[in-house]
Amino acid sequence: MVREIEFTLNGYHQKVSVKPGEKLLDVLRDKLGITSAKYGCGKGECGACTVNLDGKTVRSCLMYAVEADGSVIETLEGFQRLGKKEIQEIYQKHNAFQCGFCAPGFILSTDELLSQNPDPDEEEIKEALAGNLCRCTGYKNIFSAVKEMVEIRKGRES
């Protein structure tokens, strides 16, 4: 029952053979060398495996790879090339992460938030990041970094 699926991954066209039961997370990690999507719970509860699929963040641990056939996938690996460096830089400036394991998920969730809502308020920021668990930081610097990103974007627009 192996089948060939195709999608765009970080701007590159990819073709890969999968069985229907293979998870997107495993295929990305084991067959396509994507390491930024992490295994944290395998049940959609932690956000460590977050990738962007057709413009929206999804839990790659909770999807079969076959479901992604024909889609456009972005992961942290593609960020710099896709011109999204600023989010990373501001997170870096704020020392936003400690062990860093949750960072890719947060960065992707932040990217989604800012692309959908250029001027989120504090509650909206928290709501957008509430599905990403971080055990180290207490979230404070993550939160302040995103607030700064919002300010910078607003400043640029006005």
Partner: peptide, 9 residues
Amino acid sequence: VASVGIRNS
């Protein structure tokens, strides 16, 4: 319901 990453699907 859940959080953004779940609600998107």
